[in-house]
């Protein structure tokens, strides 16, 4: 039984691992920290898995556990200092799409998002993942109205960071 459970967990997480990677991308600045957070989210997902019921989608369930780990549970490891920044290393646009202004703009945008606080990042993340306000509010535990208000503030804040 346990083996079966484990197998099913690993298989599903392997398939949906990009969700975890994306959380890590927003909440960490370098490859070591990224992998560290990825591991912690995996541990938390596995722990919560026995209680996971098929009535929710595995991916939806992952958003919650992943964000909760990044925002609340994760303690930054010592390993996460003194390594190269993600934005300059991993973030490359393919040659055929190369567009100086857009690439530059995106780079600045990612940098701006990294300057947001944990809660604002969560809003941006769920927005980028195309979640509606109902789901955003349920994931964060705030009302839908407040989620909208906060989202608008985040957009404004991003504008200010980009055009000081």
């Amino acid at each position: 039984m346990n083996k079966e459970l484990e197998h099913s967990f690993v298989e599903q997480l392997q398939k949906h691992q990009n969700i975890v990677h994306k959380v890590c991308r927003l909440y960490t600045n370098n490859a070591d920290a990224h992998n560290d957070l990825f591991q912690e989210i995996t541990i938390q997902l596995w722990r919560a898995f026995p209680k996971f019921r098929g009535d929710a989608k595995f991916s939806t369930w992952m958003y919650r556990v992943g964000l909760n780990t990044a925002i609340t549970l994760y303690r930054k490891s010592k390993r996460s200092i003194n390594t190269q920044e993600f934005d300059t290393v991993e973030f490359k646009i393919k040659a055929e799409e190369y567009d100086d202004t857009e690439e530059q703009q995106l780079k600045l945008l990612y940098q701006a998002v990294h300057q947001l606080n944990d809660i604002e990042k969560a809003l941006v993340f769920l927005y980028l993942e195309d979640k509606d306000y109902r789901e955003i509010s349920a994931t964060l535990g705030i009302t839908e109205v407040n989620a909208r208000v906060k989202m608008n503030r985040v957009k404004k804040k991003l504008k200010t960071i980009l055009n000081p």
């Binding site: 722990r47 209680k51 556990v65 909760n68 609340t72 349920a138 994931t139």
Partner: peptide, 9 residues
């Protein structure tokens, strides 16, 4: 519980 909302957790 990690499956609660962020605030509840």
């Amino acid at each position: 519980s990690t499956t609660d909302s962020a605030k509840k957790l």
